[in-house]
Design a protein around this nucleic acid. Structure first.
Lengths: 236, 236
DNA sequence: CAAAAAGTTGTCCAAACGGTCAGGTATTTA
DNA sequence: TAAATACCTGACCGTTTGGACAACTTTTTG
């Protein structure tokens, strides 16, 4: 595993001055204490950033949530922007799902079902990650512009190409592959991003496994049927 | 039209101290200048709040965007929270769509198609409104908790009841009405909330009428087919 | 085991910001 | 037209906050 895989994507003109995964002298030092603190800080920061936004998240509050003194945060991260971008970088890795691996030879229904279920699972297990990404995009994605115009666009283009090949092989009826990807993204992420709303309407205080399964089953069935495929749950 | 239709929903314990639609002595005064300024402030505030979050949106920047001196904002709104809640109140009115009016006697395909197209239209014409609502919900909806647990929950319950009656009349196959509403909400709002991402991937700088139509057609066809209805576009 | 490097933290400060207020000007009212 | 009311705004202030820094302790290294 690389130490800082996506930093180059975020802000090309102004590179991150202080990479927290390297020590001040530049030598990588995987101390347990260090890794532990970094993980605590990143987790705390993600939560606070989601709840209060970038400006509203004070370093003091992040430090409190991480159980560290404020000045310690500044030992690992040069400033708040660096910390924020580190959280974003970590987040982008979650985007690399199994749907990356789809091939023209695959069965569309199986591949789409797997994609939908994986996205639902991530939404239920890492809601804050999805929320932070959503907030960043909603605000105009000032820290993700380059990523979206390069890596993400290429990802969608390649996936759309495979879907198009399924259509040309008559494995599924014609549909717009890009819109289909948007549909899957939006409907699955909704359970993470709008967690508060979904829970309010369902009159629950938190998600349970049953809710997740129902959501996954519904979305897989409905979307597969929606693009003219036989849902996997259908009896033969 | 009532002057302040939804303020009671937002924060029941601490009512808004200064309602900007009334003058200091309490008499309603629909001066053109006043209305004009209020509209400019609300529009500017919505934009700045979306771009920078509640804490990040300085009153100075809102004033600049509205073309007014900072102190003038404080003439109309007691404080930043009051202003923010006024923007939220305005926003909730947009939720009252034609889908409110659905009846058990209606045709499901026609009603759902209308709902989907109306939501798509709102997403393309009022993206900031949708974005602000999304940011508020993502952050835990601290100012909309009561609204979601009362009005919105009841709205969904009533709509779900009508959909259920369609199912029982065999007008459409069985499906989970609440999940269906979530699917329509999420997939349509995606074009507003994730505008930046959609545009980046489509390699465009702004939406055009053709994109909106393609999105509406795709979503109406796919979702109707997804819940076992014949898409309106299908030839007889 | 001593020197160097890494890690820790209390304290301080300048900048930004929300909000107040006094002293205006414009508009309405009688 | 004069008094009252609505409207406007520059200047000011207390608080919060990001960040710097020096002094300190702990851990690693040779």
């Amino acid at each position: 595993m690389k130490s800082s895989p996506n930093n180059h994507i975020l802000i090309p003109p102004e590179p991150v001055d202080f990479d927290p995964t390297t020590t001040p002298t530049g030598t990588y030092k995987a101390g347990k204490k260090r890794d532990d603190n970094l993980a605590r800080i990143l987790d705390a920061a993600e939560e606070i950033f989601v709840a209060r936004g970038f400006k509203g998240a004070s370093i003091q509050s992040i430090a409190d949530a991480a159980g560290l003194p404020k000045a310690n945060i500044h030992y690992y991260y040069k400033n708040k922007t660096t910390l924020y971008q580190s959280v974003l970088s970590k987040l982008i890795n979650l985007w690399n799902t199994q749907f990356n691996e789809i091939k023209a030879e695959d069965d569309p229904a199986t591949a789409l079902d797997g994609f939908i279920r994986e996205k639902v699972r991530i939404s239920f297990t890492h809601p804050n990650t999805s929320k932070l990404f959503a907030m960043e995009v909603i605000s105009g994605a000032p820290n993700l512009q380059v990523y979206m115009r390069t890596d993400l666009r290429r990802w969608v283009k390649d996936r759309a190409h495979v879907i198009q090949s399924w259509i040309e092989q008559d494995k599924m009826p014609a549909t717009d592959p890009v819109q289909l990807i948007f549909l899957i993204w939006s409907s699955t992420q909704h359970y993470a991003d709008f967690e508060t709303q979904v829970l309010s309407i369902m009159n629950k205080s938190r998600y349970d496994a049953r809710t997740q399964k129902k959501a996954a089953d519904f979305l897989s069935d409905t979307i597969l049927r929606g693009c003219g495929l036989r849902p996997l749950s259908a009896k033969t």
